[in-house]
Amino acid sequence: MVSISMTVNGKAVSGEVEPRTLLSDFLRVDLGLTGTHVGCDTSQCGACVVHVNGRSVKSCTVLAVQARDDEVTTIEGLAAADGTLHPMQAAFREHHGLQCGFCTPGMVMSATDLLQTNPDPTEAEVRDWLEGNICRCTGYHNIVKAILSCAAELRGHKVAAE
């Protein structure tokens, strides 16, 4: 076993893990943060996307020991302390960017990373960015709409839901 510590959603955490423990398992099993989902477990579906040091990664393809001393943000860390949803979460709700909801945490974490580097993406850029996030319900239409809406809102333009 190896001792690790890292910062998760702004809080210092630590634990004892085997070197083979995945970051996704450390978050879900050791820390109880089950908002990070494991879909394919083969780095393709993106349900497990979290941020490590501010950039989106697939936590099923990162070892917990590799994230030692890093800053990790999961879907649980996006909303404000008083429960106010992050604008991306609010946009997914407003535009119904989900159906079963399984892929949603990864979608939201991936989308927030996109807007960090590209605050005004085109629809094509959003769809291209979602290459590593698979949704089997929605056909992506409302997910893309939610992300474009959130981007517009953060730039100061409100977009009405249909």
Binding site: G46, V49, R55, S56, K58, L114, W129, G132, N133
Partner: peptide, 9 residues
């Protein structure tokens, strides 16, 4: 290459 998350690692 791959997808954004792969490109980040």
């Amino acid at each position: 290459i791959g997808d954004p998350q792969v490109r980040n690692r």
